[in-house]
């Protein structure tokens, strides 16, 4: 059972990594415009070269 001493903290560390990623995405404003994010992914202004991807 000593393997638990490694595995459980490892699992927790992975979970914490997810939490940190969420906090980062929240801080960088990725949840400010959820509906916009859903449709912006469909625009291909980076391919046509016209317009300005901002």
């Amino acid at each position: 059972m000593t393997i638990l001493v490694i595995l459980v903290p490892l699992a927790l560390a992975l979970g914490a990594l997810g939490l940190v990623a969420f906090m980062w995405s929240l801080r960088s404003g990725q949840y400010d415009d959820l509906e916009g994010a859903a449709v912006r992914v469909l625009s291909d202004d980076d391919i046509s070269g016209r317009g300005s991807p901002r």
Partner: peptide, 22 residues
Amino acid sequence: IGDIENALGRLPGLARARLNYT
């Protein structure tokens, strides 16, 4: 979104235009 941001992107002097769709 594209209409508005592209149209404004061509305005000289404007640094950034972003539409919040929500």
